[in-house]
């Protein structure tokens, strides 16, 4: 089921959490709401779920064309997974998952045996068979996360909303679980919206990424679109490391064929989009000296200083490249930008 939001505003006192947000989430897609903390993404998710209300008189929320702005949370058929899972701590895994079915009015409630069947099917789906009698406190973080997911799915929601689904997990479990979520999404094919502040996570598993900043949506697109063609400087900076350089100094370094740059603009370039070669007089490129080499991890990080204007530039290259170049501190090198962007008020490359 698709989600359609138009002109959603929300303020808490003087603070604007959402300033006129419009968004379309196509049916069956896995969409990431990505942004720094305080950008309004969780508030937006809670408004979609009906846990918060948009400001009076502003905006509308529609599920599959049907207006649900005034529909209370319990009747929206939304599955919500909370950041800290919010499992009912005094109930077993089984009772947690069965909760949404057990609280239905008697005439809509499936018989107990059907509920048990459904709970066991869900436990199998989230790979937690045999844990139905455990209490939430006896589960690991990743297991709790999946119980919360099963509980949300038990009521057969039309839309699944996840608030920072991997936020409280350690790095290794996070990676496993997000790949699992991607596969899981392909299996159940439910419109899913998840909030995250981790760009790597969003780019890796989402069909579409919605980037938010300061109560507004900056850009919507596939991971590749937003990464390769960021619409705003914010998006560019948020999706990875970036060097922001004064344009004129770098003019000679820009790859031939790239569009002309705004004269007094700035150039945005990712550290891994800069090529280093030994400095040769007259060969072009930017002249720079090496000020720091950090070679821990798969990528080596270099800090360089431009000779002409003393601007610092971060460069990333593979360890083997670093070894091949045989670089040392204070070596003079030439830099070339393989890819770069520049933004002006109404013009973006």
């Amino acid at each position: 089921m698709s989600i359609h939001l138009s002109n959603i505003n929300k303020s808490f006192g003087a603070f604007t959490a959402l300033g006129g947000v419009d968004l379309n989430v196509p049916a069956g897609k896995l969409v990431a709401l990505l942004g720094p903390s305080g950008s309004g993404k969780t508030t937006l998710l809670r408004i979609i779920a009906g846990l918060d209300e948009p400001d009076l008189g502003s905006g509308s929320i529609a599920f599959h064309g049907e207006d649900v702005t005034r529909v209370p949370a319990g009747k929206r058929k939304v599955g919500f997974v909370f950041q800290h899972y919010a499992l009912f701590r005094h109930m077993t895994v089984f009772d947690n998952i069965a909760f949404g079915l057990n609280v239905r009015p008697r005439r809509d409630r499936p018989p107990a045996s059907d509920i048990a069947d459904r709970v066991h099917r869900l436990l199998k789906l989230v790979q937690l068979e045999g844990l139905d009698e455990r209490l939430p406190s006896q589960l690991s973080g990743g297991q709790r996360q999946r119980v919360a997911l099963a509980r949300a799915l038990a009521v057969e929601p039309k839309v699944l909303l996840l608030d920072e689904p991997f936020g409280a997990l350690d790095a290794k479990v996070r990676k496993e679980l997000r790949r699992w979520l991607r596969r899981f999404h392909e299996e159940i094919n439910l419109t899913t919206l998840f909030v995250t502040h981790d760009q790597e996570e969003a780019l890796e598993i989402a069909d579409e990424v919605v980037i938010m900043n300061q109560a507004k949506i900056e850009q919507v697109g596939t991971p590749q679109e937003v990464y390769d063609r960021p619409a705003t400087p914010f998006v560019y900076q948020f999706l990875g490391n970036v060097n922001i350089l004064r344009a004129p100094a770098l003019a000679p370094a820009v790859t031939p064929g790239a569009p002309a740059l705004v004269r007094d603009g700035q150039i945005y370039v990712r550290p891994h989009d800069i090529a280093i070669s030994p400095f040769v007089v007259g060969a072009g490129g930017v002249e720079a000296e090496i000020r720091g080499i950090h070679a821990a991890g798969p990528q080596a990080k270099l800090t360089l200083e431009q000779v002409s204007n003393h601007e610092l530039i971060e460069v990333e290259l593979s360890r083997s490249e670093l070894v091949g170049l045989d670089l040392k501190l204070n070596d003079r090198v030439g830099l070339r930008l393989r890819r770069s962007h520049s933004f002006s008020e109404d013009y973006a490359i």
Partner: peptide
């Protein structure tokens, strides 16, 4: 209040939320 919110999204009314979630806690 997260557990109460969870109960509400799962369709529980106020009374059910109080008796089944808040009070046992």
């Amino acid at each position: 209040s997260e557990e109460e919110y969870a109960a509400i999204t799962l369709g529980a009314n106020g009374w059910q939320t109080f008796w089944r979630v808040t009070l046992p806690n």
